[in-house]
């Protein structure tokens, strides 16, 4: 009992889905508490102070977005959202409200646990690191130098800031809106094409095959995600 048991709350109205999410999380050593509705979920979260929330967006007594807003008011713990494939707008809304990641139904146990581990790693702290590596790319934040297989890569200021934004959130989906707000400001929220053009340039400079990126992945209709392993 060297480390205290990590606590997860699963808010989902479908019992079979709750059941396998519980099985999966417990296999990784989580202590799991279940809730079936939005009200129960907020109550359970308040009582258990969880380190992780797995949240279905379509709850019988409201949308999961409301849960995220309520929960974010007092807890920074990661929230992973479960959503249907065609609901890109819901996903964006959830991410913008403060969700950390999402899983598209149907999803497997492997995908669920991979996302959970990624959020865990992110929480362990990236910001402290001055050096970051993914694939054969090395970023030295203290000297602002980006290398690919030991060759210096020339980045424009926007490309560099874009890359740093991904590194700070590596493994996590960043929506187009979040990128625009971060790099250009809230007045540029409708300029999604800025992001696409600069992402294209960044991929040209960093990816081996920009047409089949290995690290700077597109989450179509939602945003982008930096992954270090493919």
């Amino acid at each position: 009992m060297s480390t205290p048991r990590r606590v997860a709350v699963v808010v989902e109205d479908e019992q079979p889905i709750r059941r396998f999410v519980r099985t999966a999380l417990e296999s990784e050593g989580w202590s799991v508490h279940e809730a079936r509705t939005l009200r129960e979920g907020l109550h359970e979260a308040g009582a258990r102070k969880p380190d992780l929330v797995v949240l279905d967006l379509g709850l019988p007594d409201g949308t999961g977005i409301d849960f995220i807003r309520g929960f974010r008011a007092w807890s920074p713990a990661p929230v992973i959202v479960l959503s249907a494939r065609s609901d890109e707008i819901d996903k964006i809304e959830a991410l913008d409200a403060g969700a950390d990641d999402y899983l598209t139904k149907p999803f497997g146990v492997g995908e669920l646990l991979a996302r959970v581990r990624a959020t865990e790693r992110r929480r362990a702290g990236v910001s402290a690191e001055a050096r970051f590596r993914f694939g054969d790319i090395e970023v030295d934040a203290s000297r602002r130098v980006v290398r690919k297989r030991d060759d210096v890569v020339h980045l424009t200021p926007i490309e560099y800031r874009l890359l740093m934004l991904f590194i700070a959130n590596h493994g996590k989906v960043i929506t187009h809106g979040q990128i625009l707000r971060e790099l250009w400001g809230p007045a540029y929220m409708e300029h999604g094409h800025y992001v696409r053009v600069h992402m294209g340039h960044l991929r040209q400079k960093l990816e081996d095959d920009p047409g089949q990126p290995a690290h700077l992945l597109t989450e179509t209709g939602v945003g982008y995600r930096l992954v270090d392993e493919t």
Partner: peptide, 20 residues
Amino acid sequence: SHDLRTPVTALIGLAESLAL
């Protein structure tokens, strides 16, 4: 869409969790 996806999601998850 919701009613059809839910059992399929449960099916995949439950089958995969057998290994755990």
